[in-house]
């Protein structure tokens, strides 16, 4: 069964940004970003996705893919 893969760590590495920096920019707690990064999140709000994409200057597909 295919599953959703979150490549937040890859994008963070590309942008040379830490999770703490992103947390400060998108106003999401570190614990929630960790849940997202580790693939434990069950859902993501459009507003969260929008703010992360804006902070990392990327498209949703750069962060989320189906494996």
């Amino acid at each position: 069964m295919s599953q959703i893969i979150i490549s937040l760590d890859v994008m963070l590495a590309k942008r040379k940004m830490s999770l703490t920096d992103l947390s400060g920019k998108v106003d999401i707690t570190m614990s929630n970003l960790s849940i997202l990064k580790n693939g434990k999140a069950k859902a993501i709000r459009f507003s969260t996705l929008q703010s992360i994409c804006k902070a990392l200057d990327c498209q949703p597909g750069d962060i989320i893919s189906i494996g």
Binding site: N32, K42, A43
Partner: peptide
């Protein structure tokens, strides 16, 4: 509740 808590 669990699902809501794991919605980022």
């Amino acid at each position: 509740k669990d699902e809501n808590e794991l919605t980022i």
